[in-house]
Design a protein around this nucleic acid. Structure first.
Lengths: 188, 188
DNA sequence: GTCTATACGGCGATAGAC
DNA sequence: GTCTATCGCCGTATAGAC
């Protein structure tokens, strides 16, 4: 296992933070290098082009996504509850990277859209496995998507409105789960 | 009522279409002017700066939002069903503008975030009025937000997966509405 | 591995003709 | 009201020193 240099990681951290907090346009090579504490030349030694920098962040996103999906699979309260619970914005590495990826995806960086799509599919597979009923599974996915869309909003602000009443939200997820069972039983 | 020139509208149309289909970075003054069939100088006669162009689109968004909210208020199947039904991406003026506004919001154009927040609040007010129970109202808002987040994805592609089974989705909305009634009755 | 200096292109905006 | 021409800035990328 080749250990990538520390500078590489610091540059990716800086890039993700800038994307998240100031947007794609502000995440210039100059700004990223400055935030990481290296020169532009230093940055371009590690990542030959800006595209390579973006692709490296996409790789990191997929790694973090795999970790998250594994935690979701083995969550004590089940994948659905884990999914909704963790869709509120925190300052975890996963959430910061996810918000950054949304910016990249919107800037038409194809690998970013691919990575987000892949993670989304992993989530959907686990939820469908637990719920069985497709339209209920989709409904729960959408609730999580909705919560993540707040994480995608500009600014540092954590909005207490969205997902503020997480207990109430999880109660509705239970209602939907029960409804799925009933709908499945009805059809035999 | 002063009727704004046709060229102004054509420029806003071009700007919105470019934002939606190619992203914020591609929506340069050159590109917008070309798409609208005028020169860059012509554009800058109508909108003195790029900021003014963006703000004009935000105004248009608020106008379309007011129209949409009015339709939602008087929808025969109720505000919630209308909201979820119409949260799938179409090619209506509202949806094209909405997708464009998300791009602007992510590019940290403050008036765009403000306009989206305002429309969101209008929606929430109507849903809360119909549902009464706050956590169910929030759940339904999130389902719509989730659907809209697909509209925010890059590319022209209409994804059949999300909101493809609209009947099933509306069935779950009914389940949630019934659950809200039950929860309210329980508390007296 | 990291730096400075520089080339190059593109974007927003101004000036002024028609 | 719409055009062309041009300026100045900034972002990406290269060259080459240390």
């Amino acid at each position: 296992m080749p250990r990538p240099p520390v500078a590489r990681d610091k540059l990716l951290d800086a890039y993700a933070a800038l994307l998240r907090r100031e947007g794609e346009r502000a995440a210039t090579l100059d700004a990223v290098a400055a935030k990481a504490g290296v020169s532009k030349g230093g940055l371009l030694y590690h990542f030959g082009t800006k595209e390579a920098l973006a692709e490296a962040l996409c790789e990191r996103m997929l790694d973090l996504g795999r970790e998250d999906v594994e935690k979701m699979r083995t969550a004590p309260d089940g994948p659905c509850a884990y999914y909704v619970r963790t869709s509120v914005n925190t300052k975890s590495a996963f959430d910061v990277t996810y918000a950054a990826m949304i910016r990249l995806s919107q800037a038409y960086v194809a690998p970013a859209s691919d990575a987000l799509g892949q993670i989304h599919r992993w989530w959907m597979d686990l939820i469908l496995e637990e719920i069985q009923e497709p339209s209920v599974a989709e409904t729960i996915m959408l609730i999580g998507d909705g919560l993540y869309s707040y994480a995608a909003l500009p600014g540092e602000l954590d909005r207490p409105e969205a997902g503020g009443d997480m207990d109430g939200l999880l109660r509705q997820v239970e209602v939907l789960k029960a409804s799925a069972k009933a709908q499945l039983a009805e059809r035999g």
